[in-house]
Computed example of a mutant assay.
Amino acid sequence: MNDRLIRRKRPRDSALRDVFLEHLKKAANVSDAARAAGIDRKTAYNWRKGDPLFSESWRLAIEEATDLLEGEARRRAIEGYDEPVLHGGRLVCDAEGQPVTRKRYSDGLLRMLLRAHRPASFGGGRTTPDHDDLPPVTSEGDDAL
């Protein structure tokens, strides 16, 4: 009977792990991912500790979420974002009643991205950027990639 209980839990655990990892990919937040999967944070950490495959999936989910964050930082730094205009604590609207916005850019995010990718020029903590995930450069040109 104990074996039956274990077998019944495994498919459910697998589905819960999938839900957890999908949410972890989006926000890199263990608490939110655990809530979405309906599990306790400790359960997720126990799974990570006891299952190397799950641990690697966790690491990859965090990497994916971090890539999303970096993309958003880059967008805000370069393309900017629309900020509503306030006057006297009230939203300013145009003649049609639409909120007036101004384009804002984040110099702080731009500096952070430059320090991360060009530390020698812009004074980051690392001496070389981390590009271990890029394909190796070959002498055969772009066709080799």
Score class of each variant (00 low, 15 high):
Arg41Tyr: 02
Gly124Met: 04
Asn2Arg: 08
Lys42Pro: 00
Thr101Pro: 02
Leu110Thr: 00
Glu70Thr: 07
Arg48His: 04
Arg74Tyr: 11
Leu110Gly: 01
Ser57Lys: 11
Pro136Lys: 06
Gly124Lys: 00
Gly108Asn: 05
Gly38Ile: 08
Tyr45Glu: 14
Ala44Lys: 00
Arg35Gly: 04
Arg126Phe: 10
Asp82Gly: 11
Arg75Tyr: 09
Asp67Met: 06
Pro135Ser: 06
Gly141Arg: 04
Leu113Cys: 05
Ala27Asn: 07
Asp18Phe: 08
Leu16Ser: 02
Pro84Val: 13
Lys103Phe: 05
Glu96Met: 09
Leu69Thr: 15
Val30Trp: 00
Asp107Cys: 04
Val30Cys: 01
Glu63Ile: 14
Glu63Gln: 15
Ala27Gly: 12
Leu91Asn: 03
Gly125Tyr: 06
Gly97Ser: 07
Val137Lys: 06
Arg118Met: 06
Arg41Asn: 09
Gly123Trp: 09
Asp133Thr: 06
Asp107Ser: 03
Ser121Gln: 14
Met112Phe: 13
Ala61Lys: 00
Gly97Gln: 08
Leu86Ile: 14
Ala33Val: 13
Asp67Lys: 13
Trp58Leu: 00
Pro84Gln: 05
Thr127Arg: 11
Val85Ala: 07
Phe122Asp: 00
Ser139Ala: 11
Gly50Lys: 12
Leu114Gly: 01
Arg115Glu: 15
Val85Thr: 14
Gly97Thr: 10
Ser31Ala: 08
Gly38Asn: 03
Ile62Lys: 06
Ala27Glu: 12
Glu72Lys: 09
Arg17Phe: 02
Asn29Thr: 07
Arg59Trp: 02
Ala95Gly: 01
Arg7Ala: 09
Asp133Gly: 00
Ala37Asn: 04
Asn2Glu: 08
Phe20His: 01
Asn29His: 14
Leu109Ser: 02
Lys25His: 07
Met112Arg: 09
Leu109Thr: 02
Arg59Ile: 09
Asp94Arg: 11
Gly97Cys: 05
Ala27Gln: 07
Arg76Trp: 04
Asn46Ser: 12
Ala33Lys: 03
Arg104Asp: 10
Glu79Tyr: 04
Ile39Gly: 01
Lys9Val: 08
Asp32Ile: 15
Phe122Met: 01
Arg118His: 08
Leu91His: 14
Met1Asn: 03
Leu21Thr: 10
Pro11His: 02
Phe20Asn: 00
Arg76Glu: 12
Gly38Thr: 09
Ala73Asn: 12
Asp18Glu: 08
Ala95His: 13
Leu21Tyr: 02
Lys103Gln: 09
Val92Gly: 03
Glu70Tyr: 07
Asp107Val: 05
Asp130Leu: 12
Val92Thr: 03
Ser139Val: 05
Arg74Ser: 00
Arg111Leu: 04
Asp51Pro: 04
Ser106Lys: 05
Ala28His: 15
Arg90Met: 09
Ala34Glu: 03
Lys42Gln: 10
Glu96Ile: 03
Ser57Gly: 05
Arg4Trp: 14
Pro84Asp: 13
Arg8Lys: 13
Arg104Phe: 04
Arg59Val: 05
Gln98Cys: 10
Pro99Phe: 11
Ser121Val: 10
Lys25Pro: 01
Met1Ser: 10
Arg118Thr: 01
Asp143Met: 09
Ala33Met: 07
Ile78Tyr: 07
Ala116Glu: 15
Arg12Gly: 01
